[in-house]
Amino acid sequence: MSPTEAIPLLIVVLLMISVGGGDVQQLSVTFQGETSVETLDDVHVVAGGTTTVPVDTAVSGDIYVIGGTARIDGAVDGDVTLLAGNLSIADGATVRGTVQTIAGDSSIAPGATVGRVSALEAPTPSNSPAQRIGAFLLQFLVLGGIGWWLVSRHPVLLENVGAAVADHALVSGVVGSLGAVTLLVLFVYMMFTLVLIPLAIAGLVAELLVVLYGQVVFGYLVGTHLPLERSSVATVAGIGVFLLALEVLGVVPYVGGIVQVVLAVVGFGAVLNTYFGLQRFEPVTIPGGGS
């Protein structure tokens, strides 16, 4: 696992530690090879290779697995959290705290002693049509409500962003991709400072809100092409059609995902270019030309 690949999961570990209020003095990480643990720091992160707590060995501290394999054959006085990779707790082994599985493969032998077992069941919307429809309706209601309010009270905002999407899609896409990626990296690295974690989370939420604003604008644009007289009704209907189209695109492998990303970055860039619709985007005029 390279540093770049390890960073996101290490950040998640740091977030979990800080959210849990843990007082961590020392943190160690193993990235490769066979490691047999006789003593533990406050937190040990398994990012690669195989780390084993041998039989007849008792260690104290928390273990996070973000890659590779962790084998517990002895006793751990603390929690074991699996974020990715493999975890096996053998017969006769003991974990006094909680064994929490968020993602990855875990196996706990029947003869193992574990304080508490917790597993995060990832939502599987594809397996539950009711959940998918519910989520879709919720998103439609929220965005439709925002669209209704904007087009009724501040139609210029949607007009300006819509014009940037329709007339300057390439520029919006370039600015959107540059801005979104740069800000994403910035927020991730802010998290590493720990002090700026709240700001980074706020920034990530803000990025998401900008993407949602872009979706409202796409809905507004679709609405202008619908045979409905009232602009507010047309906008809400357009948002519904747009969200439905996104859902359909999600079913198409590869191309569907790419189109979804392109729409997101174009919307993102259009929102940034127009200062959230406060100003119409006009590219600079380059004089000259002709032949």
Binding site: S2, T4, V29, F31
Partner: peptide
């Protein structure tokens, strides 16, 4: 984490 330096490097940079 010195052991990181021995691992493969990401082409992202």
């Amino acid at each position: 984490f010195p052991s990181l330096a021995q691992g493969p490097t990401s082409p992202l940079n």
